[in-house]
């Protein structure tokens, strides 16, 4: 079976996010009020061939943990969908 995986990588809470802070200042420079708490991140999508949804999830989590995120500073979230 084929699944599509989405991995979202974000800085862990408490880790300074200079990009997020800069974007937040840019939002207010645009004249948009009331926006706060901007945090950046990255999203990766890929396809996984596996026997079951749980097996596909395990593969995606492995990729997310061992490569796409640095656990010292980042968290990741994985979602899987059958194609």
């Amino acid at each position: 079976m084929r699944f599509s995986a989405t991995v979202t990588v974000r800085l862990r809470p408490g880790i300074a996010d200079p990009e997020g802070s800069t974007i937040e200042r840019a939002v207010s420079a645009l004249g948009i009020a009331g926006v706060s708490g901007v945090r950046g991140g990255r999203s990766f999508t890929f396809e996984v061939e596996a026997d079951s949804e749980s097996a596909a999830t395990a593969v995606a989590v492995d990729v997310a943990t061992r490569l796409l995120s640095n656990p010292v500073i980042e968290d990741h979230a994985v979602s899987i969908e059958a194609k």
């Binding site: 300074a16 200079p18 640095n70 010292v72």
Partner: peptide
């Protein structure tokens, strides 16, 4: 070296980018 786990911690984008 930090990414390889040979040294602890990580190097993040500089403050104020």
């Amino acid at each position: 070296l930090t990414e390889a786990g040979m040294l602890p911690g990580a190097l993040q984008k500089n403050a104020h980018l």
